[in-house]
């Protein structure tokens, strides 16, 4: 039996809406190897963010088994979370945003300074430390969010639609950037997206979710992942339409049901 870094078995999450229980996730099973990039794609409301919040240790009201590096999820541990917007605190400068995690971990000042300087320099943000998030472009903002995650040296990087609000070019730039970071760190990454091309580009393992309640409908091993030079090439587009047919089919089933 293989030892996975991230393993999820029979995960079920219920919410309460107006006193009624609503099942957001049911019987979710999947796993990722250490250093693998997983991408979750699925229609709106199928429970992707719910899944991420469980993994980030923000929602402990779940049943089933979730193990990250052999341990149940916990916030402030070895998992870092990046959100679409509103992840950075607008009242803190870039610098203060980046060091927040280290401060909360009670690291000493010297250590914090060195770590933050190194990360900001590496991500090309060295000169932006004094700015507020509102003074950055969307792309820069997400770079800062990545810096804030990386400075904690996490083992698992969770990203909830990190590039959704970016324009196409910036989005591609950051996708490549994420791949570079992965090459260097070999982090385990789980990323949520609505964008099929993004899934094909980034996901070594693509997990297609279906709604009501959210389940993993299909797991696709994707050999094209990471090949950003293939963007727009025939095999790439074929893979995209393959995924699209799955997502469509599901929507069709739902409509006819």
């Amino acid at each position: 039996m293989q030892d996975y870094f991230l393993s999820i078995k029979s995960l079920k999450v219920d919410y309460e809406q107006k006193g009624e229980p609503v099942t957001a996730l049911d019987a979710v099973n999947f796993s990722l190897n250490q250093g693998q990039r997983g991408v979750i794609i699925g229609p709106s409301g199928c429970g992707k963010s719910t899944l991420i919040s469980v993994l980030a240790g923000l929602n402990s009201h779940y049943s089933g088994q979730v193990l990250i590096g052999g341990k149940p999820p916990a916030s402030g541990g070895e998992t870092a979370l990046i959100l679409q917007d509103f992840g950075l605190l607008p009242w803190k400068t870039v610098w203060d945003n980046v060091i927040l995690g280290l401060r909360l971990r009670k690291k000493n000042t010297g250590e914090i300074k060195t770590a933050a300087e190194t990360v900001l320099e590496k991500l090309g943000l060295g000169s932006l430390g004094k700015r507020f998030p509102a003074q950055l472009s969307g792309g820069q903002r997400q770079r800062v969010a990545i810096a804030r995650a990386l400075v904690l040296e996490p083992k698992l990087l969770l990203m909830d639609e990190p590039f959704s609000s970016l324009d196409a070019l910036t989005r591609e730039e950051l996708q490549d950037f994420l791949l570079e970071i992965w090459e260097e760190t070999k982090l385990t990454i789980l990323l949520i997206t609505h964008n099929i091309e993004e899934a094909v580009l980034l996901g070594q393992k693509i997990l297609i979710m279906s709604p009501c309640p959210g389940q993993i409908q299909q797991e696709v091993e994707n050999s094209l992942a990471g090949a950003s030079h293939l963007r727009g090439e025939v095999q790439f587009l074929e893979m995209c339409s393959f995924l699209r047919s799955f997502l469509r089919g599901r929507a069709h089933d739902a409509a006819s049901a």
Partner: peptide, 18 residues
């Protein structure tokens, strides 16, 4: 307040005081 601010600080390990 945006819930994202809360989740991101919690995910960084922030407790109620933080």
């Amino acid at each position: 307040l945006e819930k994202g601010y809360i989740s991101s600080v919690r995910s960084l390990g922030g407790g109620s005081r933080d």
